[in-house]
């Protein structure tokens, strides 16, 4: 152990030297009126999917509120290790952020542990409806089945082969909700259409996702959709084969402007705005939010470069209206 003691002594000494040389690492205290948000995300902020949807929303809120002087955003991306995410959430909470967001359903368990230790900090997590009955925890969820349903309706009216392919990660959570909604939308429009679903068992295997798309195309699909960040490979295969693509979570038009018909885009700012105003008025949690078509948190963004028959568009709009006024329920 002597060596170890020595080792630690040297490390301590070196670090002291280092910290003495360097300018003080502590950030300057923020002016009181600035609202500070920290977010922990499972994938990269530019994943064109789940994490990007939150990051983009935060940036939009920041712009609404007048830029970084009034609204500070810090983030930890790629925190797929649940345990590391817990450490990050606790650290942000102890740094006195006004709102600490755990943007992933796998973070809920950690928040349940952490939130009671920081009663003056507001926490939010999703996608879920569970606030654990804690007064400083918000929960948020995307009714991704709604956008899935609309995508399904539009897909059903555009397919000519009557076969549609779906590429998913693992059969759970937001992905399953979207896929089930999509299938319901197709079935409601034309029950004769066959929807083939493929879960590839991974959020990162781009190669397998793209081969899944190839498989769908070989099976006769002329319309494809998919959810989560690994579908970027599948979109390319759809483009090669001239099949249509429907996106979700973020707007995926930029990946293949000629074949992306529409994307369900999450506008979390609807939820964020409400949360922030509640926090400012002193309510730190206890409420769960849903973004959906009716409250504008989910928006079907059409690709302007892709034109489809007016009847199909009318069907989609009717589905959106029906879901908004409650006459259509995507999932029982």
């Amino acid at each position: 152990m002597k060596k170890f003691t020595w080792l630690m002594t040297v490390v301590v000494a070196l670090s002291l030297i280092l910290s003495a040389c360097g300018p003080a690492a502590t950030p300057t205290p923020a002016p009181v009126e600035k609202f500070r948000v920290a977010v922990v995300m499972p994938s990269a902020i530019n994943d064109l999917a789940f994490s990007q949807s939150m990051y983009d929303a935060l940036i939009r809120v920041q712009n609404e509120m007048g830029g970084p002087e009034n609204f500070e955003i810090v983030y930890s991306e790629n925190m797929f290790v649940v345990d590391d995410a817990a450490a990050a959430l606790r650290d942000y909470a102890s740094q006195g952020f006004d709102l600490v967001i755990g943007h992933g359903s796998q973070y809920g368990s950690s928040l349940q542990e952490i939130a009671p230790d920081f009663p003056d900090t507001s926490f939010a997590w999703g996608t879920t409806v569970d606030t654990f009955g804690l007064p400083n925890v918000f929960a948020y969820e995307a009714a991704s089945d709604q956008g899935g349903y609309v995508n399904g309706v539009l897909a059903a009216s555009l397919t000519t082969s009557n076969v549609i392919g779906v590429v998913g990660p693992i059969e759970t959570g937001d992905a399953k909700l979207y896929v089930d909604g999509f299938k319901a939308g197709v079935a409601a429009t034309n029950p004769a259409i066959q929807v083939n679903v493929n879960y590839i068992g991974s959020f990162s295997d781009v190669a397998l996702a793209s081969e899944a798309a190839n498989t769908h195309i070989s099976a006769g699909a002329d319309v494809l959709t998919g959810t989560a960040q690994m579908v970027v490979g599948a979109i390319g295969k759809a483009e090669e084969a001239g099949a249509l693509w429907f996106g979700t979570q973020s707007n995926q038009t930029s990946l293949a402007p000629s074949i992306v018909v529409a994307s369900q885009v999450y506008h979390w700012e609807v939820v964020l705005d409400e949360m922030i105003s509640m926090i400012k008025s002193g309510t730190l949690g206890g409420k769960s939010f849903v973004i959906n078509l009716a409250n504008g948190g989910e928006v079907i963004e059409y690709n302007p470069a892709y034109t489809f028959p007016a009847e199909a568009g009318a069907l989609a709009e009717a589905a959106i209206e029906g879901i908004k006024n409650g006459s259509i329920k995507p999932l029982p």
């Binding site: 290790v81 649940v82 368990s109 950690s110 693992i170 991974s202």
Partner: peptide, 22 residues
């Protein structure tokens, strides 16, 4: 030990490292 000492449950994000932290 990770289950009984840290997480108190098992959660998956679809990958191994989500649970094991590599």
């Amino acid at each position: 030990v990770q289950v009984f000492g840290v997480n108190y449950r098992m959660i998956t994000d679809g990958s191994a490292s989500g649970f094991t932290g590599s």
